[in-house]
């Protein structure tokens, strides 16, 4: 429902940040963001407002969560699929 796009803060002036979306920059308002942001931070933008400062460690955290799904921690994946993945190293999650 809501088009949220992550970007990186280039500079902050009061309650307005200039955010780089890897190709275009745009002013993003900071009234709504949950934590103070500074240059270099990642934010989630929706309709010109930052609604979340994305902590860098959480980006890696999400990726790790998916890795754990594929590793089968908590038996999320049947053993035969894991075997199949191991037999195709070019498609394995750690390739």
């Amino acid at each position: 429902m809501c088009l949220g796009v992550p970007g990186r803060v280039v500079s902050v002036e009061g309650l307005v940040a200039t955010v780089d979306f890897w190709g275009v920059r745009r002013a993003v308002r900071l009234e709504l963001v949950d934590e103070p942001v500074q240059a270099g931070d990642y934010v989630l933008n929706h309709v010109g407002f930052a609604i979340r400062r994305i902590p860098e460690e959480d980006i890696q955290g999400t990726l790790d969560l998916y890795e754990s799904l594929l590793r089968g921690d908590g038996d999320l994946m049947a053993a035969d699929v894991r075997a199949e993945l191991e037999a195709n190293p070019e498609q394995s999650p750690d390739a």
Binding site: L3, V5, F21, W22, G23, V24, R26, N45
Partner: peptide
């Protein structure tokens, strides 16, 4: 696709 066009089209949906 140019980087700027790709970024703008992501932003604008």
């Amino acid at each position: 696709v140019n980087a700027a066009v790709r970024a703008a089209s992501e932003l604008l949906g």
